[in-house]
Write a protein that binds this DNA or RNA. Structure first.
Lengths: 222, 222
DNA sequence: CGCTTCAGATAGTTACACTATCCACTTGAA
DNA sequence: TTCAAGTGGATAGTGTAACTATCTGAAGCG
């Protein structure tokens, strides 16, 4: 197929496809003439993956490129791919990490990891992100928010266990690697939205519903 | 205090503080002369909140403004504030939501909500975000990732229940409202980082550790 | 008195993610 | 066979976001 059809089938505008080609997110098609190229189903699939990362996962174009590059580079090493996908998705940090408060928060995270016997890369940026959140909460006097850090860790662990199990059930290795990436990125988007809905429900339940919702058709679901 | 000290105590550069003042994220100080103003602890606190939202929560400046505005507007209505904070944090959507596949995904989400008796705003953007993730996974043939959507919902519910309980334990209403916002934004950042760590652990455990990690000092924690 | 700092205003910068044109070819239906 | 529509590749332009820099005239302060 040529760009026009690729565009129609993926829903991505032609100029954007060209942009992704330039940026190296999408491999070039097979050239059939000086100004003609042929794209296959793998291009369509790659394009859908890119759009899932960018639109649903909120990943930047640069990070998406790193992810798809890692998909090629670590085609047989799920652990490396997971690390690459995670660090690509991890935002650039701004917080000040030199303060003693931050160091204490990081130590708390390391203790949590050690207490649970978690096997993680000690240099993983995720550790610092947890410390960032703890430090920010503490600086605003909201330490009680994360008093039960253990419960967060337990929930995370049980979700992760189920996801990894699902991924490993895939027989085809190439498809399995794609699932690693999708689980990392889409799983986060999905869970965070579900968490918001659960917040709404629990707030309404524990506070009571003081007044009718402000929208048209104001009924509460179920 | 004057800007210089506000800057030193918060770690935010003076030009950035001025920018936040211009953009209405930070209220102006009390004017003491034509070109002098006085800032208090509430300005410092507000500044720390803004930086927590932006740096740790990854919220845009525009969304941060909406959140702090909502903090003032809904000073006595936690449910409204929660809704405002959630929609401020929710990213703008790109995916195509007109396809029958997406409609089916949305129906699945609505069924899940109904089955659990969750009390949520039927028009909440979070519902659409869940449908987006489901649709993206389906378009790439990864439906098995979210076969156990129920488990995600259960985890989200138990986390949310604990957080809402923590927030309601705060006696001071103003401080409680700040906790609503912090719980929404920081809680997400924290959980998503913990989830990544849990993924590392579970992957290593279920796959086995094929080789030494690539970093210097390559030991695995604990 | 003189050096620093300040508030407020305006203008400039960098990064990002596209989007638009242009050109010299192909393609494919009439 | 013709010729509009489409194409690959290159280059340039757009709009937004989040700062960052500079300027001006007026305090603050030792």
């Amino acid at each position: 197929m040529r760009v026009g059809e690729l565009s129609k089938r993926s829903g991505v505008p032609i100029p954007t496809i060209k942009y992704y080609l330039r940026e190296g997110l999408l491999p070039a098609g097979a050239a059939t003439a000086a100004n003609q190229a042929d794209y296959g189903d793998e291009h369509l699939r790659r394009l859908l993956l890119i759009r899932a990362l960018i639109d649903v996962g909120g990943v930047s174009v640069a990070s998406a490129r790193e992810v798809v590059t890692a998909l090629g580079t670590y085609a047989d090493d799920p652990l490396e791919l997971l690390g690459a996908a995670q660090s690509a998705v991890t935002p650039r940090h701004r917080p000040d990490r030199e303060t003693p408060e931050w160091q204490a928060a990081k130590q708390r995270v390391l203790d949590l990891i050690a207490a649970r016997g978690w096997l993680v890369y000690p240099l993983s940026p995720s550790i610092d992100l947890v410390a960032d959140a703890l430090t920010a909460a503490a600086s605003l006097g909201a330490t009680e928010l994360f008093d039960n850090l253990g419960q967060y860790a337990d929930s995370a662990a049980s979700l992760a266990a189920a996801e990894v199990r699902t991924v490993l059930e895939r027989p085809d290795p190439a498809a399995r690697m794609e699932l690693v990436v999708l689980g990392t990125v889409l799983g986060e988007a999905l869970f965070s939205a579900l968490r918001q809905l659960a917040h709404q429900h629990e707030s309404a339940r524990q506070i009571g519903i003081p007044e009718a919702p402000p929208q048209k058709n104001p009924g509460i679901a179920q």
